[in-house]
């Protein structure tokens, strides 16, 4: 009995975990199968032949690499912009006293919950009248609408976790506020900044609605709309090619998961879900 219980528990847990990850497993399996093997009934659960032809075709015959580059530019610029602004803003919100500070903090929280579809129509009109539609810059601005409140909120909680005494000590020693920020706060905040940057990058990397509305030229499409257009425009859908695209599109995420996962979980604690 003492031995049966843990084994049973492991069995149940792991079958559920495998069930949950099955779609992802299936994505990888499908991307490695030759096209002919895809339409076998019943399906081959383990591929009979493993091929990388779809990956090769994806990179050489489709605009995938261009979409990928657009996404990298879009997500990195958004991240740098938003985390830069957010760090200074959060420092101000947490460690300074002035009128309207509380109201501002509540406004940030409110915008953090705001639906994108409310903003999309005016933003679309704004980009058209500024002549910015169909540019990556319009997407960067649009991504700020959800990324900045998010980053501010996250950084604010990280900042609150840093003891005030450290900063006071530096001030007593004659440091200026910004000097204290650079030498005391910033090093302490760094894990929080990394965590926020990762979240922002992933949010921006995965965003679909703004890209759908603001960009309709293939040259500036990020991965989300680009890969979807490969599905819609295809006469007969090549699932293995799409699955290869899905795997490639998830690469940054896989890297983050493999090496930086602790930053993701620490961001969760800060992101407004503290119980």
């Amino acid at each position: 009995m003492k031995l049966v219980r843990p084994v049973l528990l492991n069995l149940i847990t792991w079958s559920l975990v495998l069930l949950i990850s099955f779609p992802l497993l299936w994505m990888i399996v499908t991307s490695l199968k030759p096209q002919t093997e895809l339409f076998r009934i019943p399906p081959t659960w383990v591929p009979e032949t493993v091929t990388f032809e779809h990956y090769w075709r994806l990179l050489s015959e489709t605009p995938f690499l261009r979409y990928f580059r657009n996404s990298v530019v879009l997500a990195s610029t958004t991240t740098v912009f938003v985390v830069g602004l957010g760090t200074l803003g959060a420092y101000s919100l947490v460690r300074f006293r002035y009128r309207g500070r509380e109201t501002l903090a509540m406004l940030v929280l409110f915008t953090y919950l705001l639906p994108s579809v409310v903003l999309i129509i005016p933003l679309y009109l704004m980009m058209v009248s500024l002549g910015l539609s169909n540019t990556l810059f319009s997407l960067i601005l649009a991504h700020t609408t959800f990324a900045l409140p998010y980053a501010l909120w996250l950084l604010r909680s990280f900042m609150e976790g840093i003891p005030v005494d450290l900063e006071n000590a530096a001030l007593v020693d004659g440091a200026s506020r910004m000097g204290a920020f650079r030498d005391v706060i910033f090093p302490q905040l760094l894990p929080g900044i990394i965590s926020t940057a990762l979240f922002t990058f992933i949010l921006s990397w995965n965003e679909y609605l703004y890209a759908l509305v603001l960009v309709n030229s293939d040259a500036v499409s990020p991965l989300t709309t680009g890969v979807m257009s490969m599905l819609i425009s295809a006469f007969n859908i090549e699932w293995s090619l799409l699955m290869a695209a899905s795997v490639m599109m998830s690469l940054p995420l896989i890297v983050v998961f493999a090496f930086l996962q602790s930053y993701l979980t620490s961001g969760f604690g800060a992101g407004g879900v503290k119980g």
Partner: peptide, 30 residues
Amino acid sequence: ARSLVLFPYFLSTVVAVLVWKWLFNDLYGA
């Protein structure tokens, strides 16, 4: 196990939808 469970949350919705559309496929879907 935790990493595997966490993964779908961070996945792009586009990827999730593509994978599930293929799973839901009438004839050949898993």
